[in-house]
Amino acid sequence: MNNMLTIAMPKGRIFEEAVELLRKAGYQLPPEFEDSRKLIIDVPEEGIRFILAKPMDVATYVEHGVADVGIAGKDVLLEEERDVYELLDLKISYCYLAVAGLPNTKMNEVAPRVATKYPNIAEAYFREQGEQVEIIKLNGSIELAPIIGLSDRIVDIVSTGRTLKENGLVEYKRIANVTSRLIVNPASYRLKDAMIDQLVNRLNDVLRGGIK
């Protein structure tokens, strides 16, 4: 395993963009890569092993060192606060974290509630605003919460704003911009420095080219 680089990739939305970026960086990935249902894909020609993880878990794999490198959204890094190097902004999968709710509503005075997939980010945000709120952790379909009266506000990622609109919600405040980042385990950053530097340089070339 010492001459192989293990990369944790996020399944789903970011995956295709990440694969495209790696291809642009000159990595020869097999054509059936995207369609595979395998969780581990070896590309021996490149000396790379990919592991396909839930986006929220990528930083965890990397922190523990079972993956040397990972591609993770800034939202995940803010939420999880893992001890990893955040080396590159890959400038893909742009979206942002926002507070949203039903239009023209105020937070409930007696019991302000916020539903979110990101309890740490939400808690930190409202604490900084000097507001004490009850955080309700949900695992998906966050937009449902204000509609059916579970919470006054939600904290979630917004990419086009369509989901909010279709569910009759409006954005109240942007918290932070989110793009995907290249993250690295601290031990791998030392012991596989040559391989990681090469990856960073190749990705950097693509990123610079892409900025015009």
Partner: peptide, 11 residues
């Protein structure tokens, strides 16, 4: 300084 080993992710 920090010491790192090949198969452990933490210093």
């Amino acid at each position: 300084f920090e010491a790192y080993a090949g198969n452990v992710g933490f210093p």
